[in-house]
Design a binder for these strands. Structure first.
Ligand SMILES: [Mn+2]
Ligand SMILES: [Mn+2]
Ligand SMILES: [Zn+2]
Ligand SMILES: [Zn+2]
Lengths: 150, 150
DNA sequence: TTACTAACTAAGAATTATTCTTAAATAGCA
DNA sequence: TGCTATTTAAGAATAATTCTTAGTTAGTAA
C-alpha cells in the first residue's frame, strides 16, 4: 500500500526531527511500517522482540510516543482500551470491526475532499482544525475474510 | 441541547432493557445526561459522589458498561487513555481539542446526510456498517472560550 | 581515531484506568 | 410481607502505560 522507506530514509527522517537514529528506533519504525494492521504497543513488542530480545517494552512505548510527537506515526484510540499505532500518514479513514477489534484502512480521496469542502464552508469559531478522522463502525460478515472496498 | 428525561422515563427505559431501576443507576444516568461535556468515569464519580458518597467507583464502571451494552449511552475512546461517556444519542460528531482534551458536540444533519449518501454509494464488501463517527481534531484558540459553529 | 556528553535504553517500580471477587443489600414480584 | 435474582460496596487484581535511575551509545569535536 504505502511504499516503505529505506534505512537511509528513516535515518534522515529521525535526524530531521532531532532524534538519534538508534537501532531500537529503526527496528520499531520498520516493524510498524511493515505491518498491515494497526498494532497495539504490546503486539508490536512481540514482533520486534523476536529479533531484538533485549529491547524493552518501556523503550517501545517511549519510542512510539516520540514518533507520535514529531508526527512520524499516528496514534489511534480504540474502544478496547489499548492505543493502536499507524505508520500510514496518508490522509485516510478507518473501518472498525466491533467483533474482531480490527482496524482496516479506508483510503478514499473523494470522501476526503467531500468532508474537507464541507468543513471549509462551516465556520467553527475559536477553533483551528488540524485534521479529521472518520471511523466507520460495524462488523465483518465473515471474520476470516478481508474487507474489500469496491 | 437534548431534552432531559424525567425520572419516570428513565425508569421505563431501564425496565425496557431488563435493568433494575436502582437509585445508583438513576443517579448516574441523570448526572451524565445533565453534563454538557463528555466526562470520564472518574469525573462522573466526582459529580455523583457529592450527593451519594456511598456509591462506589466499581458500581459506576459497571453501570456505565451496562448502559453502553443496551445503547442507553455511548462510549467515546479518547487519545488521553481514558474513556469518555456520552448520553447524547442523536447522530452527531465530535470536535476534539488536543490541548484541553475537550470533546465538543458537533451536530449537523447536512454533514451526516452527506457522509451517509457517500458510504451508501461505496460497496464495502464483507462488512455490515452500523454507524460512523467523525472526529475533528485541532485546538481551541482561546481555551477559556467556547467553540461556536456558525 | 578517540574522547566526550547529551540523549537514549533496560529493568523494574509506580501509577492510572478498569475489571474482578465476594459478601451484603435491595428491587421487583408473588 | 417474604423471596430471590440482581445489584452493590469494598477492596483486590489486572492491564496499559509512565516513571525512575543507573548504565549505554550516537553523534560530534578534538
Ligand atoms: Mn455530548
Ligand atoms: Mn488502561
Ligand atoms: Zn490507518
Ligand atoms: Zn457527543
Amino acid at each position: 500500500m504505502i511504499e516503505e522507506s529505506t534505512l537511509a530514509q528513516i535515518k534522515q527522517k529521525l535526524r530531521a526531527y532531532n532524534l538519534k537514529a538508534t537501532q531500537q528506533r529503526l527496528v520499531i519504525y520498520k516493524a510498524l511500517q511493515a505491518t498491515e494492521g494497526h498494532p497495539t504497543a504490546e503486539q508490536l513488542y512481540e514482533m520486534v522482540s523476536k529479533d531484538n530480545p533485549s529491547l524493552s517494552l518501556g523503550t517501545l512505548y517511549k519510542t512510539l510516543e516520540a514518533f507520535v510527537a514529531v508526527q512520524l506515526i499516528k496514534k489511534v484510540a480504540c474502544e478496547d482500551g489499548a492505543m493502536r499505532f499507524d505508520a500510514n500518514l496518508s490522509t485516510h479513514n478507518h473501518i472498525f470491526c466491533t467483533n474482531t477489534q480490527e482496524i482496516i484502512d479506508f483510503e478514499d480521496k473523494e470522501l476526503h475532499t467531500l468532508i474537507t469542502a464541507f468543513l471549509k464552508r462551516k465556520n467553527i469559531d475559536n477553533f483551528e482544525m488540524t485534521d479529521f478522522q472518520l471511523q466507520i463502525n460495524g462488523q465483518k460478515v465473515n471474520p476470516k475474510k478481508k474487507v474489500q472496498i469496491t
